[in-house]
Design a protein around this nucleic acid. Structure first.
Length: 300
DNA sequence: AATACGGGGCG
DNA sequence: CGCCCAGTATT
C-alpha cells in the first residue's frame, strides 16, 4: 500500500467523521485528560451506551485524579456497578494514585509514562495521547483493526490476535503530524463503531464502499471463523465471581458466609471464585468471633 | 501465543 | 444462544 492510497483512505474517513461524529460527553469541548482516561478505561470491553451514564456520574463525583485517589475502594467498586471486569475499577483508582504520586495529579502525555500506569495498555495509552492531547499515536482497537482488515486486506474480520506486522501496517497509515493523526484515530474508530460493524456492516452508508477491498471481493466470509473460540458464560467461574461481587456490592453490611453459600450451589466452584476475589483485592474477609463463620465485604 | 476476566443486548 | 463490545495482565 503506497502513501497515496493511505492518504486517500485517511482523507475520506476523516471527512466522513467531520459530518457524522457522535456527540459523546468525553468528546465535549470542556473535557479533561482525566475524563478521557476514565472513558477509555470504562470502554475497555464495555459498550458506549452502558458507559455513558456511568462516566457522567463518575466524573461528577471524582472530577480529578486526586479525588478518586482519596476515595474508598468500596465506594469505587459500587460506583463501577455492573460495567463488568471490576478489576478495572481497582486499577483505575491505582492509576489515580500513581498520577498523584508521580505526576502531580495530572495525566501525562508521554507514551512511556502512560504505559507505566496501572490498567493502561498499548491501546489506552495511544488513545489518551490522541484524544486528550491531540498527539500522534497508533490507536489500534477492535474497530480500527476491522476497518483496515476490510478496506485494505479484503478480509471480513481481523485475525483473532494482533500481530507485530499488523501494528506496523496500522502505523504506516497514520499521518505524520499530530493533528491529522489524532483525527484519523478518532475517525477510524468511529467508522468501525457505527458503520463498519462486526455483525451487520452498513456498507451503503460507508464512505469507503467504492474503494473497499472486502466489498470488491464480494464480502467473503471470515477466514478465521474455524478457530475463533467463544468465551463461555453460564456456569463459569466468571459468572460465580460476578454473583458474589453483586452480593457484596449491594450489601449495606458485611455478608456472612452462609449468605454467600446461597448465591451458588456448587461448593468447590464457589470457594474458588471467592478465593479469586480475595486474591484480586476485590473482597476482604472480616474477623469473626470464635465458632462463627467469617463475613466478607468489599475492600476498604 | 493463549487465558482469565463481567455483563448485557442483539440477530 | 452464540457473538460482540474503544483491552489488560499474566502465564
Amino acid at each position: 500500500m503506497g502513501a497515496g492510497i493511505a492518504g486517500a483512505l485517511v482523507g475520506v474517513v476523516v471527512g466522513w467523521y467531520d459530518e457524522h461524529a457522535r456527540d459523546l460527553p468525553w468528546r465535549a469541548h470542556d473535557r479533561t485528560p482525566w475524563g478521557v482516561l476514565v472513558s477509555e478505561v470504562m470502554l475497555q470491553q464495555t459498550p458506549v451506551v452502558r458507559v455513558e451514564p456511568a462516566w457522567r456520574a463518575w466524573l461528577e463525583r471524582w472530577p480529578t485524579p486526586a479525588d478518586l485517589a482519596a476515595a474508598s475502594s468500596a465506594d469505587v467498586l459500587r460506583a463501577w456497578d455492573r460495567l463488568g471486569y471490576p478489576r478495572r475499577a481497582l486499577r483505575l483508582q491505582e492509576c489515580a494514585r500513581a498520577l498523584v504520586e508521580r505526576h502531580g495529579g495530572a495525566v501525562p502525555d508521554d507514551e512511556a509514562a502512560l504505559l507505566a500506569l496501572p490498567g493502561i495498555g498499548s491501546y489506552t495509552a495511544a488513545a489518551v495521547r490522541a484524544f486528550a492531547f491531540g498527539r500522534r499515536a497508533v490507536v489500534l482497537d477492535t474497530n480500527v483493526r476491522r476497518v483496515l482488515a476490510r478496506a485494505v486486506d479484503g478480509h471480513a474480520l481481523p485475525a483473532p490476535s494482533q500481530t507485530v506486522a499488523e501494528v506496523a501496517r496500522a502505523a504506516a497509515v497514520v499521518p505524520p503530524d499530530d493533528a491529522s493523526a489524532a483525527r484519523w484515530a478518532q475517525a477510524s474508530m468511529e467508522l468501525g463503531a457505527v458503520v463498519c460493524t462486526a455483525r451487520s456492516p452498513r456498507c451503503g452508508a460507508c464512505p469507503l464502499v467504492s474503494s473497499c477491498a472486502w466489498v470488491a471481493a464480494g464480502r467473503p466470509g471470515d477466514v478465521h471463523a474455524h478457530r475463533r473460540r467463544t468465551q463461555g458464560w453460564a456456569g463459569t467461574d466468571r459468572q460465580v465471581r460476578g454473583r458474589l461481587m453483586a452480593l457484596l456490592r449491594d450489601a449495606p453490611a458485611p455478608v456472612p458466609e452462609p449468605a454467600l453459600d446461597d448465591a451458588w450451589p456448587a461448593t468447590e466452584q464457589r470457594a474458588r471464585a471467592l478465593a479469586g476475589l480475595l486474591a484480586d483485592g476485590l473482597a476482604r474477609e472480616l474477623p469473626s468471633a470464635d465458632d462463627a463463620p467469617p463475613s466478607y465485604a468489599l475492600p476498604s
